[in-house]
Design a protein around this nucleic acid. Structure first.
Length: 230
DNA sequence: TGCCAGGCCGGGT
DNA sequence: ACCCGGCATGGC
């Protein structure tokens, strides 16, 4: 349904070729840009529909105030937290979401990354999705980049790039897109990490919603993608 | 100068 | 099961 009706074996080769092309063009991305796993979790919530530059400012402010810990975020007033993260936009909503996550993280794992990481992926994902403010992409970003679980993150860039190359249909769901990658790549934290990071880099540079600059994109040759897949 | 950025929720069909 | 309006700052 969401994926165009191509045979899995052929698209499998295409998916791997796209990865190799992006990696050879841009090299390793060393994601996620953060100093600690908890910072990854916070960043995953702050970056929702927001430019990463704005998130950097917000995180810098949290660090300057020395409140970038589960406990500190938990006890901080909603109003004060909202003021700190102002540059990230949607600050009232995100302040609530950060506190929701902090409360969950403390209640269930005592704010310990190691304890949370010890749990299996299959139980962690549903748990994260019960937290108000954590949807599929945010949950998967936390799972992959903070907890090092092998799950492929789907974001707007991932969908856009594959839709523009007619590998995905425009109305593809998150789940279908994720299944597409899971079915064609071995479950590997480093591979999923690098692939998603490379797609975001490619999207930011060549494939934004307005201003598409395909001329310089290493994936520009359509034949490279799907000539042998369709 | 508008448009948009590494979404998600709640309420409505 | 979708679809939509709301949320908000800062960069280009």
């Amino acid at each position: 349904m969401g994926v165009s009706a191509t045979s899995a074996p052929r698209t499998k080769a295409v998916v791997r070729r796209i990865y190799r092309k992006l990696f050879s063009s841009f090299g390793p991305q060393y994601w996620w840009p953060a100093q600690t796993p908890f910072e990854v979790m916070v960043g995953a919530i702050l970056v929702q529909n927001t430019n990463w530059k704005n998130v950097e400012k917000a995180i810098a402010r949290l660090k300057a105030k020395k409140v970038l810990t589960p406990r500190k975020l938990h006890v901080l007033s909603l109003r004060q937290l909202a003021r700190y993260i102002r540059p990230a936009g949607y600050f009232n909503v995100k302040a609530r979401r950060l506190k929701n996550f902090a409360a969950f993280f403390i209640a269930r794992y005592s704010g310990s990354v190691a304890r949370m990481r010890a749990q299996p992926l299959e139980s962690l994902r549903p748990q994260l999705l019960t937290v108000n403010g954590i949807g599929e992409e945010t949950a998967d970003s936390i799972l992959l980049y903070a907890l090092e679980k092998p799950i492929f993150v789907i974001d707007a860039y991932t969908k856009r790039i594959f839709i523009r190359h007619k590998i995905f249909q425009p109305n593809i769901t998150y789940q279908k897109a994720q299944e597409f990658f899971h079915g064609r790549l071995r479950p590997s934290v480093t591979l999923y990490n690098e692939y998603h990071a490379l797609l975001v880099h490619t999207g930011k540079t060549f494939c934004q919603a307005s201003s598409v600059r395909c001329a310089q994109c290493p994936l520009r040759e359509a034949a490279f993608f799907y000539a042998d897949a369709l």
